[in-house]
Write a protein that binds this DNA or RNA. Structure first.
Lengths: 162, 162
DNA sequence: ACTCATACGACAAAATCTTGCATTTATCGG
DNA sequence: CCGATAAATGCAAGATTTTGTCGTATGAGT
């Protein structure tokens, strides 16, 4: 599965139906998908490959329960930076993205500049991370922490038209 | 793939290595995984199934690029509620979780009570969603919006020990 | 009307996944 | 220290899925 550069393709309702299935369970046999969307299995397979090559399907992954691997704490962090020059912002992006504990990182507008989703085993680990990532960064003006008590809904499912 | 109720199992370094592979690409053949962790393919397969039954592996999904399916805008929302009684909080959880545009929902401590990750095709759609979800809810005191300009890092990969 | 491009289904081949079974390894009580 | 039981492994056969090839149908453009 080589993540080729995407070149934007058009999707019909067959593709969307296939995506909707794969978004929920990508172990579904192509034969079964074919039955539900009224196509042959090879046709389904061709469409899947096309969407993978175009980058519509970015990756196929197993989703792991953090709690069961000792990474029980999910934390949101809003980060505000001092200077928003392109270089400094890019540097921050690269630094945040390179940290394994940072599960997600978004560059946003509004009262904050970055929003991070962090996964750590203990609050002590989080504290150590803040020292390294925020207090150790001259360009971080302020950050706000939100500890998750309940992961009500977690996923990367995209609402699809149709 | 039946998502059975989990009953917490112990994981050894073999399991963690397998998880680390599947987290990144669950289409990796078990034979290949076996080679990298020094186990036979059936042994790998049995471990995977055990972890699926125990809920360590929650699901297997394809990750779709929102931009390529016309859902280009990612938005963070911090929601603050008026009353935090158990019933009202549960009601809010259920309502947020039921909305397809709400990709993720966390109940958090701190200056906000909920954090949402929302995916919409247009700002108009977001505005309509806020009317329905926040202005139409008596228990919502205030919400703050952060529009994502760059999805720097997106995923549900859990940092694994070892 | 013709041609080319695209997508389809059917079939066959290759690869992968699954299962049964004998053996090895680990644990625990004697 | 030794033997019995339980758990996990590897190997090999069988079932399933995925992949590739071929011929055909549908549409767009000439």
């Amino acid at each position: 599965m080589v993540p080729k550069p995407s070149s934007s393709i058009t999707l019909d309702s067959f593709d969307l139906a296939i995506l909707n299935t794969l978004q929920r369970d990508n172990t579904t046999p192509q034969r079964v998908i074919g039955e539900t969307v009224s196509l042959s299995a090879p046709a389904v397979q061709r469409r899947i490959r096309r969407m993978e090559e175009a980058g519509v399907i970015q990756t196929n992954v197993a989703i792991v329960d953090p709690a069961q691997v000792g990474q029980a704490i999910t934390i949101f962090v809003e980060v505000e930076v001092i200077s928003e020059t392109a270089e400094l912002v890019d540097a921050a992006k690269r630094e945040f993205a390179s940290v394994p504990e940072v599960q997600q990182c978004y560059y946003v507008t509004g009262e904050a500049d970055f929003v991070l989703v962090v996964i750590v085993p203990t609050m002590a680990a989080y504290e150590a991370l803040t020292r390294r990532l925020f207090f150790g960064n001259n360009n971080v003006k302020r950050f706000r922490t939100f500890v998750a008590m309940d992961r009500v809904k977690v996923g990367l499912t995209v609402p699809l038209p149709e």
